[in-house]
Design a protein around this nucleic acid. Structure first.
Length: 885
DNA sequence: TTAGGGTTAG
C-alpha cells in the first residue's frame, strides 16, 4: 500500500509531499526505511518473501533525493513544523544523501539542523563521516570524527562498535597504518564485523604498496580451510583483490599473477574491481597496449569498462601528454554509455594541463563550473589543484599563485597537501625559498595531528630540497634531506635523481665523480636496513633506476665520454633497468658528439622500433578510427606523437653533417608515414640538413610552408578574448574558427607584431600586480590572460642555427656560387674545370635565387633581416659563439 | 548494493 501511495504522491504532488507523508506515518514507515530496523537489515537474507520492502525503501529514497534543496526545506520548516518533525526529516535526509554518495549535501543538512539547535544521533553522523571518507573529503571527515569520538565516549554497545568501525574505515582509506591497526583491534574486541575489518586492514597495506604486510594479514586472518580459528574468516573476492592491489601498487607483476591464481583457485571470477586494479598497474607503467588487451579481456568476460576503467585509461594518456587521444577516448566512453563524473573530468582536464593545452584546460574547467552551478554541488579542491598546476606549469608569477591560494580559503575550500605542494613549487620556481620553507613548516605543523587530514610527504620535502639545490644552496638542501631521514620519510627515486642532477650539471670532474659515487652507494644492498625501499613504486624498480641514472648518463654524454655512457648503461641494465627512449637517446647523443657514425647507425633502429611500440594507441580504442588522423595543417589539434622528436633531431644532425643526405630524406618520410609528428626543433634541423645537402630552395620552403603557418595558427589561437559557456568538455566539439587560419601570415617583428608584443608585456605586468583581483569570481581568468601572454607558439620560428645556414647559403648564391652538398668522408669534390662550368653554375645559382624569390618571399625576408642583424651585431655574435637554438 | 577499484603534488 505504501509503495503505491509513495508512487502516486511523487507523480501528482512531488517529492516534498513524499517526505511529508513518510514523516507523518513515521512510526510505521521507519520499520521499512531505517537501516537499523530488523526488517531492512535482515530482509535480504532471512525474509525473502517481503522483498517489496527493499523496493519501497529504494524508491522512497530516490524520490526524496529529488528534492531541489533539502537545506532550504529545513530552513522553511523552522517556522512551520515541530522540532520532532524537523529532526526526523534531517535524519532521513542525511540517510538518503549519504546512501546516495552525496555527502556534501548531507553535511549541509547537518549544519542547518545544528543551526536550529537540534542534534542528529551519532549513528547518522558516523555514517556521514564514512561517506565523506569515501569521497576523499578527509579534511572534513577527520575533524568531524575527532569531535564525535569525544562527544560519544561514554556510549557503549552498538554505538561504541560503530565508532571503532568508522575510525577503521577512515584511517584505512587514508593509508594511516598505525591508526588502522589500532582501530582494527578495537573492532575485533568489540565483536564487530570481521569480514569488513580484515578487508580494511588489507586495504591500508594495499594503499601503501606494502605487499609483504598485506600477505601477512591475509595469512593470519583468512583461510579457505573450513576449520577456522575464531578470529579467522573465509576470504571473499574483496580480500583477494586487496592483496592484488598491494602488489600492483609496488609494480610487482609476479605477485599480482600469483594472487590472481589464488583468487581463481578459490572459485572467484575477476570482477570489475579486480580488472581495474590490473588496469591501473599497466597505466602507471604507461603500457598502453597491455591496457588495451586487459579491456578486451574484460569485454570478453562480460564486464563492460565502467567510468573508473575509462578514467584509469585517460590518466595514462594524460601522463603521455596526449590530450587529443584523451579527448578521443573520452568521446568513446560517452558513446559507450558512460556518464562522466568529477574524477573523469578532472583527469581530462589534467591531460590538457600536462600537455600545455591551456585552451583545453579552461574549457573543461568552465564546463565543470557550469555543471556545478546547475547541480548545486561545489567544485572540489582536486579541480582547483589541477588548475593551480596549470598556473605553475605556465610559469605564473608566485604572487599570482599565492593570491589564488588565499582565494581558495575565501571560497571555503580547504587546501590539502597537493595544494601546498603546488604553491611551494611555485615559490621555489620564483626563488623565494624562505616562503617555500614557511609553507613547508606550516604543513609539518598541520601534519602533527591527523585531524587536519594533511600529511607531510616525500613530495613536499623533495620540492623544497630540489628548490635549494637549484638555488645553489647545497647546505640547506642537505639540511632538508637530513630532516626527511629524521622524520622517517622515505626518500624516493625522484629525491635521489634531483641530487644526482645537481652534481652532474655542475662543471668539473669532481662533481660528476661525486654524483657517480652517490649512485654507487645507493646501490649497495643491505637487506637489514631495507635501504632500497626507494626502488619500490608503482612504475616499478626499472623506472626508479632510470630516474637515478638518467642525469649522470646525460652528463657523460655532454662531456663526450662514450666509454662512461656505455659502462653506466651496462651497469643500469645489470641492476634491472631496461633500455628506454631516454637512455638510448643519451647513447645516440654521445655518439653524435664524438662523430661515431657506426654507433649512431646501431642505436637509431632500436630507438625507432621502441618509439613505434610506445606510440601505438590503437589497442585502446574499440573504434580504430576514433583517433584523429595525422598530417593536419592545424598544429593545435594534432595527436601528440612527437616522442621521437629529440632522437630524430640528433640523428638528422649526424647524417647530414656526414653527408648522408638521402638517408635524412628517407627517415623523415618513413616517420611521417608512420604517423609521427615533428616539433619545431625537427623542422629547424631539417632546414640545416637541406642546406648541407645543397637543397637551398627547399630549405627556404620549410620556413615558408611549415614554420610560418604553424606559428601563425598557434599565435591566433590565443587571440580570442571571448570565453563562451562551454556546452561540451571536449575541444574537438567546436568548429575551428575559419578566421584563425585564413589571415595572411605576418613576420616577426613587423610593426603590428611589435605592438602586440608590447601589449602582451603590458598585460603580463598587469598579471604581476594582481590580475587575479580583476574577476574575483572567475578562477581561470588569470590563466585565460596568461595563456595569451605566454605564447607557446614562440618556439615555432626559425632558430638561429637555421637562419645562419640560410643566410650563408643566400650570400653564397648571390655571389654566383652553387651550394655544394656536404660529402661523406672519402668522397672527393671536383672544382669547376672550365669557364663554361663556372657560367653554368652561376646560371643555376640564379635559378635557385629566382625560385626562392618566387616561392618563399616571407622566408627570404626572415633571412634578409638576419643578414642585416648579423652585420650590425657581428662582433657580439662571434664573442657569443652563436649557441644552438 | 552501505568491505575493495579511478581524479590532484616531486
Amino acid at each position: 500500500m505504501y509503495r503505491t501511495l509513495v508512487h502516486v504522491l511523487r507523480e501528482f504532488r512531488g517529492p516534498e509531499e513524499v517526505l511529508n507523508v513518510v514523516l507523518h506515518d513515521w512510526d510505521v514507515m521507519r520499520t521499512y526505511l531505517d537501516t537499523r530496523s530488523v526488517l531492512v537489515s535482515h530482509q535480504k537474507t532471512e525474509r525473502p518473501t517481503i522483498y517489496g520492502v527493499q523496493q519501497l525503501r529504494t524508491r522512497t529514497f530516490q524520490f526524496i533525493a529529488d528534492l531541489k534543496s533539502p537545506v532550504q526545506l529545513l530552513a522553511t520548516a523552522e517556522k512551520t513544523q515541530s522540532s520532532t518533525w524537523r529532526l526526523r526529516a534531517a535524519e532521513l535526509l542525511i540517510d538518503v544523501l549519504t546512501g546516495r554518495q552525496m555527502p556534501h549535501d548531507a553535511l549541509a543538512v547537518l549544519r542547518e539542523i545544528y543551526r536550529q539547535g537540534l542534534h542528529v544521533p551519532g549513528y547518522q553522523q558516523l555514517k556521514l563521516v564514512q561517506a565523506l571518507a569515501k569521497a576523499d573529503s578527509y579534511e572534513i571527515a577527520n575533524p568531524m570524527f575527532a569531535n564525535l569520538r569525544k562527544a560519544l565516549k561514554d556510549h557503549h554497545g552498538q554505538l561504541e562498535t560503530m565508532i571503532a568501525e568508522t575510525g577503521l574505515y577512515l584511517f584505512a582509506m587514508q593509508g594511516n597504518v598505525r591508526q588502522t591497526q589500532s582501530h582494527f583491534r578495537q573492532v575485533r574486541n568489540a565483536g564487530g564485523d570481521m569480514q569488513k575489518a580484515v578487508a580494511l586492514l588489507l586495504h591500508v597495506h594495499a594503499v601503501k604498496g606494502d605487499s609483504t604486510a598485506a600477505v601477512a594479514v591475509f595469512d593470519q586472518y583468512c583461510t579457505e580451510n573450513p576449520k577456522r580459528t575464531t578470529e579467522q574468516i573465509k576470504p571473499s573476492i574483496v580480500h583477494y583483490s586487496s592483496v592484488i592491489h598491494a602488489h600492483a601498487q609496488r609494480g610487482d607483476r609476479e605477485g599480482m599473477n600469483l594472487w590472481l591464481q589464488k583468487l581463481a583457485a578459490a572459485g572467484h571470477t575477476p570482477d570489475a574491481y579486480v580488472y581495474n586494479v590490473i588496469l591501473k598497474a599497466f597505466a602507471e607503467k604507461g603500457e598502453i597496449a597491455s591496457m588495451g588487451s586487459v579491456i578486451e579481456q574484460m569485454r570478453a568476460a562480460g564486464i563492460q569498462p565502467n567510468v573508473v576503467a575509462y578514467t584509469t585509461a585517460l590518466s595514462a594518456l594524460a601522463d603521455r601528454r596526449d590530450p587529443v587521444a584523451a579527448e578521443a577516448l573520452f568521446r568513446e566512453a560517452v558513446k559507450d554509455g558512460i556518464v562522466p563524473d568529477r574524477a573523469m573530468l578532472n583527469t581530462l582536464m589534467n591531460a590538457h594541463v600536462r600537455a600545455g593545452s591551456w585552451r583545453g584546460v579552461i574549457n573543461v574547467f568552465d564546463y565543470m563550473i557550469k555543471q556545478s552551478r546547475e547541480r548545486n554541488v561545489p567544485v572540489s579542491i582536486v579541480t582547483y589543484n589541477t588548475l593551480l598546476k596549470a598556473f605553475v606549469s605556465i610559469g605564473a608569477p608566485f604572487s599570482t599563485v599565492f593570491r589564488l591560494f588565499h582565494r581558495l580559503e575565501e571560497m571555503q575550500l580547504r587546501p590539502d597537501q597537493y595544494t601546498f605542494a603546488l604553491v611551494t613549487q611555485s615559490a621555489c620556481d620564483g626563488n623565494v625559498m624562505d616562503v617555500a620553507e614557511k609553507l613547508y613548516s606550516a604543513v609539518k605543523e598541520m601534519a602533527r595531528s591527523w585531524e587536519h587530514g594533511v600529511s607531510l610527504t616525500v613530495y613536499l620535502a623533495t620540492i623544497v630540497m630540489a628548490g635549494h639545490l637549484k638555488a645553489g644552496n647545497k647546505k640547506r638542501a642537505r639540511g632538508m634531506y637530513r630532516e626527511m631521514i629524521e622524520l622517517g620519510i622515505q626518500p624516493s627515486s625522484v629525491t635521489f635523481s634531483n641530487i644526482v642532477k645537481a652534481y652532474s650539471n655542475e662543471s668539473g670532474e669532481t662533481n660528476i665523480e661525486i654524483a657517480k659515487q652517490f649512485i654507487q652507494e645507493l646501490m649497495i644492498v643491505d637487506p637489514e636496513n631495507h635501504n632500497q625501499d626507494w626502488m619500490q613504486n608503482a612504475r616499478g624498480a626499472g623506472s626508479a633506476l632510470e630516474e637515478v641514472y638518467g642525469p649522470l648518463l646525460w652528463a657523460y654524454a655532454k662531456a663526450k665520454k662514450p666509454g662512461e655512457v656505455e659502462a653506466l648503461l651496462q651497469e643500469l641494465f645489470a641492476k634491472g633497468g631496461e633500455p628506454s627512449l631516454s637512455n638510448l637517446t643519451a647513447l645516440l647523443d654521445v655518439y653524435r658528439r664524438t662523430d661515431n657514425i657506426e654507433g649512431v647507425r646501431e642505436v637509431w633502429p632500436q630507438i625507432h622500433k621502441m618509439a613505434l611500440e610506445l606510440s601505438d594507441l590503437g589497442d585502446l580504442f574499440q573504434d580504430k578510427s576514433a583517433l584523429p588522423s595525422e598530417n593536419t595543417t592545424r598544429p593545435g589539434t594534432r595527436r601528440q606523437a612527437n616522442i621521437l622528436a629529440m632522437p630524430l633531431s640528433i640523428y638528422i644532425d649526424v647524417l647530414s653533417s656526414q653527408g648522408y643526405h638521402a638517408e635524412v630524406s628517407k627517415v623523415w618520410q618513413e616517420l611521417r608515414l608512420a604517423g609521427f609528428s615533428f616539433d619545431s626543433h625537427n623542422w629547424n634541423h631539417l632546414i640545416v640538413a637541406l642546406v648541407r645537402a645543397g637543397e637551398v630552395a627547399r630549405a627556404f620552403e620549410v620556413i615558408e610552408r611549415v614554420i610560418i603557418p604553424f606559428r601563425h595558427a598557434l599565435a591566433s589561437i590565443g587571440v580570442k578574448q571571448h570565453r563562451a559557456e562551454p556546452s561540451s568538455p571536449l575541444l574537438t566539439d567546436y568548429e575551428p574558427d575559419p578566421d584563425e587560419l585564413s589571415r595572411p601570415p605576418t613576420l616577426w617583428p613587423t610593426g603590428a607584431e611589435r605592438r602586440a608584443a608590447r601589449q602582451r608585456k603590458v598585460r603580463r605586468e598587469r598579471v604581476l600586480v594582481g590580475i587575479v583581483e580583476e574577476k574575483p569570481q572567475d578562477f581561470a581568468h588569470a590563466l585565460h590572460i596568461l595563456r595569451q601572454v605566454s605564447p607557446q607558439w614562440d618556439q615555432w620560428r626559425p632558430h638561429s642555427t637555421a637562419l645562419q645556414a640560410l643566410a650563408d647559403a643566400l650570400e653564397h648564391l648571390q655571389r654566383g656560387n652553387l651550394v655544394q652538398p656536404v660529402r661523406p668522408p672519402g668522397a672527393t669534390w671536383r672544382p669547376p674545370q672550365t669557364l663554361q662550368d663556372v657560367e653554368e653554375r652561376a646560371r643555376k645559382a640564379q635559378e635557385t635565387l629566382d625560385q626562392i624569390y618566387e616561392e618563399s618571399p616571407s622566408a627570404l625576408e626572415y633571412a634578409h633581416r638576419w643578414i642585416d642583424w648579423r652585420k650590425s651585431h657581428g662582433e657580439k655574435l662571434k664573442k657569443l659563439g652563436l649557441s644552438g637554438r
